[in-house]
Design a protein around this nucleic acid. Structure first.
Length: 282
DNA sequence: CGTGTTTGACCGGCGC
DNA sequence: GCGCCGGTCAAACACG
């Protein structure tokens, strides 16, 4: 927020003449300082997220290995569920352990961020599966409505997803997936009927867009490594599911869509040329 | 007519 | 016990 305010201020400086010659350079210095601070804070948040995820994974693993410790710290819901099942059938530790493992699998939650047009009001995330909408609600923390979807293969497939616009960035949809699909991806026809959403995996400023007739993918071809956890410059975390989806989509596009190959070649060579030109300029 | 979406009603968990 | 809130249901509706 502070960054944006400063950015706007510096943009205004291009239009209105400055009263003090030092004012512009001072503001630029300030802008640089705040940019650096923003970057540092983003890195801190990233590290905190990593630590949190690691701790959570450890906790789940520990609970699975030590089911007896769970009845103190767990939520009331979990507690009543366990107590209820125990009173009904005096279930053994083995059974409750099995239940916890099942719950762990069932509760496998992933989050995917999808860049959309700001004007796009539909809460549709093309992720390779077919969904049936069964509800929509406005939640307290976010004025944008949240849409509830079930996999079309339900009840065979237990996967659900929630889609809601990001509170911070209205042009980003946050899709929360619960569970894992027990069937393959949908057909070509279904994929082709989708809107031209752009699944963003890399950093926006240096990305290369591939727009085949069926799919638009933004690739970051400039990163040294596709960072180990596939995080983009905004600090948004992309799940293995979204990476897998992208890889599968690209693979299928390579086989199905002859234009995709030329688009890909053009994108890579274009980036190559830019890179060489920059080298030459030095 | 079949299928998918919309939307108000309903339910259950949770905090006070 | 009550009220709030998120999640789900299901009747009505839209569309091809």
């Amino acid at each position: 927020m502070e960054f944006n305010t400063l950015l706007n201020t510096s943009l205004d400086l291009n239009v209105t003449p400055l009263r003090f010659p030092d004012e512009r350079s001072a503001l630029i210095d300030e802008l640089n300082r705040v940019s650096a601070e923003n970057k540092r804070l983003t890195e801190m948040i990233t590290v905190a997220c990593e630590n949190y995820n690691e701790l959570q994974n450890r906790l789940v693993e520990y609970k699975i290995n030590n089911p007896s410790m769970d009845n103190t710290a767990a939520s009331r819901k979990r507690k009543t569920e366990i107590n209820g099942s125990a009173s009904e059938s005096s279930s053994s530790d083995e059974e409750s352990c099995k239940k916890l493992k099942e719950e762990h699998i069932k509760a496998k939650i992933s989050r995917v961020f999808v860049q959309i047009q700001a004007s796009d009001t539909s809460l549709i995330v093309k992720d390779g599966y077919q969904w049936r909408k069964y509800g929509q609600k406005v939640t307290r923390d976010n004025p944008c409505p949240r849409a509830y979807f079930k996999c079309s293969y339900a009840p065979t497939c237990p996967v659900k997803k929630k889609v809601q616009r990001s509170l911070e960035d209205q042009s980003v949809l946050v899709a929360t997936y619960e569970g894992e699909h027990n069937h393959p991806h949908m057909s070509k026809h279904e994929m082709a009927s989708g809107s031209n959403h752009c699944v963003t995996l890399g950093s926006i400023p240096c990305s290369t867009s591939l727009s085949s007739s069926e799919l638009s993918i933004t690739l970051d071809l400039t990163k040294q490594k596709m960072s180990r956890d596939a995080r983009n410059s905004n600090g948004k975390v992309h799940t293995p599911e979204s990476q897998q989806f992208l890889v599968e989509q690209m693979a299928s596009s390579l086989t199905r869509d002859p234009n995709f190959i030329s688009e890909l070649a053009a994108a890579i060579s274009g980036n190559f040329l830019q890179h060489t030109e920059r080298q030459m300029a030095k």
